[in-house]
Amino acid sequence: MKTKIVKLLPAALALMLISPAFAEVVAGSNTATSTQQITVPKFINITHDTANSVEQCNAGFNATYDEITLDKAMNTKFHVVTNNPDEAIKLTATCLAGGNQVNAIYGADENNLRLVFTNNGTDSRAATESAVTNIMGTPAKAQNANAIAFAITAAITPDATSGATDPSPTKEADGVKYTLVNGAYDFNYSVATTAIADTFSTHDTDGIYKATLTLSQVSP
């Protein structure tokens, strides 16, 4: 027995010398990986490009005051940037009628849009809600006093370098909804310089006629 112990001593001594110093090293791995992640949240920015919009003009008339012609081609331009590939925005419009802001956009489809402008005056110069409703149905000059409708044309320009593509429009009762992919876009709405038939007459008093266009984010 003594002989065996004596034989084992050198090996034990060697193990003692080796093990403590590098015990952790031997147990370790020769590689480690770190996975790094950055979350980019959804983003959309819709701005009114005032520098490239014409939003005031003067009107001229024929001798019988049944034709109106604007002296400038008005337009409203919006710029949209989004990083959401499943984005949606909507064009709406309002005008003052009966003391309230009411829907001012109508039309058969997204390619045949009409915009109602109403006199922002008071009393006999104010438009009623029924006047706006009349224009949106079958207009009759005597039934749409102080309200005038003009055609508007949308021109949408996706910035191809941004990855934007042509949006998909859908006409809704109170505007047009667009579904977008991520990218940058210009939305330009031009107003015709002559009125829609039977929406302008001597029933339309002098004053400032106004409509407000809004482009806003909506649920896809």
């Binding site: 790094q36 983003f43 990083n83 959401n84 991520n182």
Partner: peptide
């Protein structure tokens, strides 16, 4: 990893919302 993107490599329009990832590995060969 620095906090500000290298100029020209981040664009709201081009870079979709979501998770961006890179892996870093330290190895002794």
């Amino acid at each position: 990893v620095g906090q500000s993107p290298v100029s020209g490599t981040y664009s709201v329009g081009q870079d979709e919302a979501g998770t961006y990832q890179a892996t870093v590995t330290f190895t002794a060969v």
